[in-house]
Simulated scan of single mutants.
Amino acid sequence: MEKSHKIDAHQHFWKYDSQKHAWIDDSMAVLKRDYLPEDLEPILKKNQIDGCVAVQADQSDAETRFLLELSRKHSFIKGVVGWVDLKAKDLEDQLGEYSKYSQIKGFRHVLQDEADPEFILGDDFFNGLGQLSKYGFTYDILVFPKQLDAAVKAVRKLPHQKFVLDHLAKPQIGRDDSGLWKKGIKDLAQNDNTYCKLSGMVTETKWKAWKYGDFVPYMDYILENFGSKRLMFGSDWPVCNLSGEYNEVLGIVNQYVTSLSETEQKAILGNNAIEFYQL
């Protein structure tokens, strides 16, 4: 891709299935329907976003294949972050197979749902994580603040692996956070192989009752620690619909970056994602 495209580095697609998407409870009724490329494409066009990265929402190989198929049919889907069983005995074979598809950029596991805060450091899982860089795959870290310490340990042990933190590690925005989040972010950001997505913020506060200023201290802290070269915008569409429209979510980041240089703005709104995911 040419330089300076605007990229949404984090969104999802699904054909709604009440069992597969059991995490969507009754308070999330707006999400209980299909969300597919034909729903997102006009929204991206309206907001002048040139492309997106589709991220797994279900932990299955079928999910990765589903996203791959969508990316083949819709050129605005520039990359896929799928799921693979990092504990699988035949992981190397699976990664070798997936590496044949240029659309697949990396993988993610829903670490936030694991009861063990050190799940990422478990032998089998961590060994699997260590295989990804061999194939040039990235890894999205989805954790809560209490799991940041383990994520920091994993990242330090794998300096050649490219990582990106999803949703700022989900701090409780506007509520009194323990120092856990700040310490975890600071420690994680000291690793040059790790980026962070300015995504998922509107759902970590009172839904549809937030204001722009609620997010500024968190973005300030993220920018201070990661710097503008390791941040990227992500909408978390359609999950963001629980608390804000696409243009509102984009508006938070657009408004925030206005104080930065044009180069920094372009980096956060697209160029960093292009470089990180090799779009």
Rank of each mutant, 00 (worst) to 15 (best):
W237L: 01
L121T: 07
K6T: 01
A88M: 14
I104Y: 12
T258M: 10
V155P: 11
P145L: 06
Y246C: 05
S261M: 05
A169E: 02
L121F: 02
T138W: 09
V155M: 13
D85M: 15
E2K: 14
V164C: 11
H109V: 03
Q161S: 05
T205N: 10
K87M: 13
I7G: 01
K89W: 04
Q94V: 11
Y98C: 02
T194G: 04
Q172W: 09
L188M: 11
S228F: 06
D220L: 02
E118M: 03
R65G: 05
G174N: 12
F215E: 13
N241Q: 11
G251K: 05
L68H: 13
F13P: 06
S133N: 15
K46H: 06
Q112I: 07
D93R: 13
F126E: 06
V257E: 11
A273M: 05
Q11K: 00
L269P: 02
S18E: 15
T205Q: 08
K32V: 11
G136L: 11
K206N: 13
A54D: 01
D25A: 12
L250V: 01
P117N: 09
F163S: 05
H74D: 14
G128P: 10
K89G: 04
L70Q: 14
E262D: 13
E92V: 10
H109Y: 09
S199D: 03
L111Y: 07
I7T: 01
S18A: 15
A62Y: 11
F126G: 02
D192W: 00
L180I: 06
H12Q: 08
K208L: 15
S243F: 08
E69T: 04
G122Q: 12
Q161M: 09
T138K: 11
E245F: 03
Q255C: 09
I222N: 06
P217E: 10
G136A: 09
L31D: 14
G96K: 13
Q255P: 03
Y98F: 04
N254K: 11
A151S: 14
D166L: 07
N247H: 12
F215T: 14
D140E: 12
P145M: 10
M201S: 08
W210S: 05
A88C: 13
S4E: 11
E38V: 08
G79Q: 08
A88E: 15
R33D: 08
P159T: 01
A150L: 04
I77M: 13
N271P: 03
N191A: 01
A62R: 13
T263S: 06
